[in-house]
């Protein structure tokens, strides 16, 4: 009979955890807690006489399908997800002059003077769309942060250039999202009654 590769619990737990981590709905602390749960469950099933592999499989099965748990965590972590989005938006707005001014100079040198377009209202919504998109599962976690910032800056630069925005105009325009971000952060920080997660049964 062929020898099976011995089961490595730590490796299996890490693979399972990495699969869950693909969803942005979990914070590291959530994953730590779920991992601790699966390890406890595995240990007590093993004490009943199962092999480690069998115990692990049942423990994971009892914990529930990753996408279902992720959806449930989204309901409690919603304010956390929004806080991080707002923080990214504010950061991009504050940092964008660093990129904006050289681009403008280059364009003026090249005698490109795009007509001003009334795009100002779209500025926050476009940056927002980029942030939401990058929070999905499309991008590996390590690349999400720099990509988010880059895509937001691209939007800001393109639109500001088409508006021929001066630095003064920029700061004026920036106050709007900054105030919105601050208000948003304050809003989520307020303690209030919320609908709890629906504790579904499968």
């Amino acid at each position: 009979m062929e020898n099976k590769t011995p089961f490595d619990l730590n490796a299996a737990v890490q693979r399972w955890r990495a699969e869950l981590a693909k969803s942005p709905n979990f914070r590291a602390d959530d994953l730590d807690e779920l991992e601790s749960h699966v390890r406890d469950s595995e240990a007590s099933l093993r004490a009943l006489g199962l092999t480690s592999e069998e115990a692990f499989l049942i423990a994971v099965r009892r914990t529930g399908a990753g996408d279902v748990i992720a959806a449930e965590f989204a309901t409690v972590n919603r304010s956390y997800v929004w806080q991080s989005r707002l923080l990214w938006m504010s950061a991009a707005w504050i940092l964008s002059p660093l990129f904006l001014l050289p681009v403008r100079m280059l364009l003026v040198d090249a005698r490109i003077n795009p007509d001003p377009v009334a795009l100002t209202p779209f500025l926050p919504s476009l940056t927002f769309a980029a942030v939401v998109w990058l929070q999905g599962n499309l991008v590996r976690k390590a690349f999400r942060a720099p990509l988010k910032l880059a895509s937001i800056l691209t939007f800001v630069i393109l639109i500001s250039v088409s508006l021929k925005m001066s630095l003064d105009d920029y700061w004026l325009a920036a106050t709007v999202p900054l105030v919105v971000s601050a208000a948003g952060l304050g809003f989520f920080a307020l303690p209030r009654r919320r609908r709890g997660p629906e504790f579904r049964h499968s």
Partner: peptide, 18 residues
């Protein structure tokens, strides 16, 4: 019999509600 992983979001919500 709970779907065990589902308990944690509830616990976190309860914690946020103090």
């Amino acid at each position: 019999e709970w779907t065990e992983g589902m308990l944690y979001p509830v616990l976190h919500w309860m914690e946020r509600e103090n």
